[in-house]
């Protein structure tokens, strides 16, 4: 069963902004990245799923329940991007209030609160007033709130925005821990490296449109590129699947070349072709594209298709 399912879900503000026509399915036990720059509609999408915003059109389901219903939020956790908690409460009181709202049995509350406080690294500090918490501590207590009810799906909206490098690593570890527990983590982020390091599946959104979605590994394969080192110039005519050849550097008697291919399957073919034409290969190295390049590739591709459509 899909944990999250949307069909042409749209939320706009008087016809402008927001996010349009999002159709996606998110399975169980994965970290799903919703990647896009600031203002691309990521938070709007999550807030619509959680019933905080009314959809303009389309439909959505969480754990099979229509969005906006109380039932759809029973097994859900959420850390908002603009996290603000009542500063007159202590961290523990906040968790107790949420435990009550989630109908966690009274007998289990204390134990569960202790567990989540430990998971987010706040043990010993949960009794302090939120007004005295740093931004990072507030974000940690927010994370504790998000996972308090042992949710099946957790929405994390820019969860590391206020954290230092250690905190970021802790959150990444927590996401992977939740995934290993069979939970689904829906991660909203504009940080490419964050998405790359934890996400199994990714959607890229830009200016309110969903551009592409799929397994991150596949999305990364926007092009196949290799670097080779030869002891002579490449003078033979290149086959058609080679889209670009570029001399990168001369290194004493050898030369380093960059070769762009149509796809990954062309790598063994080009090695064979060059060898059969008497070109000795001293090194062959596949090149991983820069994350920014991957993102821009999909954004540009969408723009081009929009241009053609018009």
């Amino acid at each position: 069963m899909n944990v999250i399912q949307t069909n042409s879900l749209t939320k706009t503000y008087n016809g402008k902004g927001g996010i349009s026509d999002v159709t996606l399915s998110v399975g169980e036990g994965i970290v799903y990245g919703f990647l896009g720059p600031n203002g691309s509609g990521k938070s709007t999408f999550v807030r619509t799923l959680l019933g905080l915003l009314q959809p303009t059109s389309g439909e959505g389901y969480i754990l099979g329940e229509p969005i906006g219903t109380t039932k759809s939020r029973e097994k859900v956790g959420y850390l908002p991007e603009l996290f603000r908690y009542p500063d007159w409460l202590t961290g523990k009181q906040l968790l107790e209030a949420h435990a009550e709202l989630c109908k966690i049995p009274v007998r289990q509350r204390k134990k569960r609160i202790e567990e989540v406080v430990e998971l987010v690294g706040m043990t010993g500090r949960e009794k302090g007033r939120i007004s005295g918490f740093s931004k990072g501590m507030s974000q940690r207590i927010g994370l504790a709130c998000a996972i308090l009810n042992d949710p099946k799906v957790v929405f994390l909206d820019e969860p590391t925005s206020a954290l230092d490098p250690i905190g970021r690593k802790d959150v990444r570890d927590l996401m992977l821990y939740l995934r290993d527990q069979g939970k689904t983590v829906f991660l909203n982020s504009h940080l490419l490296y964050e998405v790359e390091s934890v996400c199994d599946h990714v959607s890229i959104v830009h200016q309110g449109d969903m551009i592409v979605q799929g397994p991150w590994r596949e999305l990364m394969m926007i092009e196949a590129q290799i670097e080779i080192v030869t002891d002579q110039p490449i003078s033979v005519p290149m086959p058609t699947f080679v889209t670009h050849v570029e001399k990168i550097k001369e290194e004493e008697a050898r030369t380093r070349w960059g070769i762009q291919l149509e796809n990954e399957d062309d790598i063994p073919k080009i090695i064979q072709y060059l060898s059969s034409n008497g070109i000795a290969l001293y090194e062959v190295k596949p090149i991983t594209p820069h994350l920014e390049d991957v993102f821009m590739h999909w954004v540009n591709q969408k723009k081009e298709s929009a241009y053609v459509d018009h």
Partner: peptide, 11 residues
């Protein structure tokens, strides 16, 4: 935005 975390609960 304090209301967000209350309203996302099953109430």
């Amino acid at each position: 935005h304090q209301i967000d975390t209350w309203l996302m609960r099953p109430i």
